[in-house]
């Protein structure tokens, strides 16, 4: 029992340590970022994920509106519920979907280079893979999730207007007129800080998984799968850690 706990602790520490190392080395190379790789990664993670993100945002928004619509006749509290749902449930679910896409792709690409020995090859010609492969991807992932999240906030606001119309019978025009009352800069800032944290976590966790990969095709698959799962776990954890703090600091 004690040994099992010890082993689990060791495993957790080693995992955290590996992630911290990736983060630290990324920060180290931040001033000398490879521009070409950064652009490539931004297109791969950000631009190409746009249709997926919009689709997911539309679906999540529509579902939430439907769910709140049920309370329209029953409960005034529906509005408050709807508010928290759009600002919590939506970003979280989107983080999970984007984490799956960006995390799996990043881990798979790095794992492929790793099992093919190409990372070793880079070291052989004294290029640090962190400078040209890892650091640009971490930055790109952070920026991508940030950008995509901003787009989804826009979608969320539109859905909120629809929800207001359905639940409170508030015409859409009046909703946007009363926009300042309903949306606070603090809420927006909280959402953006959270999504940036998700983006960073997804990149770091998936990079760690990709760099650990070994053992051919099966190894690449395992690395991609591990990246998705630890990405999910990291997002939930960050959500719990950041929300109460942000609520205190930013939301009046």
């Amino acid at each position: 029992m004690i040994r099992a706990v010890g082993r689990l602790t060791l495993w957790a520490l080693r995992g955290l340590g590996a992630n911290a190392l990736v983060l630290a080395r990324t920060l180290f190379y931040l001033p000398r970022l490879d521009g070409g790789e950064l652009r490539r990664a931004l297109v791969l993670f950000g631009f190409r994920s746009l249709p997926l993100t919009l689709g997911a945002a539309a679906l999540i928004g529509a579902t939430v509106v439907l769910q709140i619509g049920v309370y329209a006749t029953r409960l005034y509290a529906g509005w408050a519920a709807g508010f928290s749902l759009l600002w919590e449930f939506g970003p979280l679910l989107l983080g999970l979907v984007m984490g799956a896409r960006i995390g799996a792709r990043n881990a798979a690409e790095l794992a492929l280079l790793n099992v093919n020995g190409q990372l070793e090859g880079l070291r052989g010609i004294s290029l640090d893979p962190f400078r040209i492969l890892v650091a640009p991807r971490v930055v790109a992932s952070l920026l991508s999730v940030l950008g995509l999240a901003s787009v989804t906030f826009l979608v969320a606001i539109i859905w909120q207007a629809v929800a207001a119309y359905l639940t409170l019978g508030l015409p859409v025009r009046i909703f946007f007129g009363a926009f300042a009352d309903l949306l606070f800069w603090g809420d927006l800032a909280a959402g953006i800080i959270k999504s940036a944290a998700y983006g960073l976590a997804i990149a770091v966790v998936s990079t760690t998984a990709g760099l650990k990969a070994a053992g051919g095709a099966a190894g690449v698959g395992r690395a991609a799968a591990a990246a998705v799962v630890s990405g999910c776990a990291a997002i939930f954890f960050l959500d719990l850690a950041l929300t109460p703090w942000l609520a205190k600091v930013l939301v009046r």
């Binding site: 799956a100 799996a104 798979a108 690409e109 794992a111 492929l112 095709a217 690449v220 690395a223």
Partner: peptide
């Protein structure tokens, strides 16, 4: 091996969506 990574990425995203 690249095809496996692609399969995981696309498979997971499609399953979620």
């Amino acid at each position: 091996a690249g095809a496996v990574g692609e399969a995981v990425t696309v498979g997971v995203v499609e399953a979620c969506m």
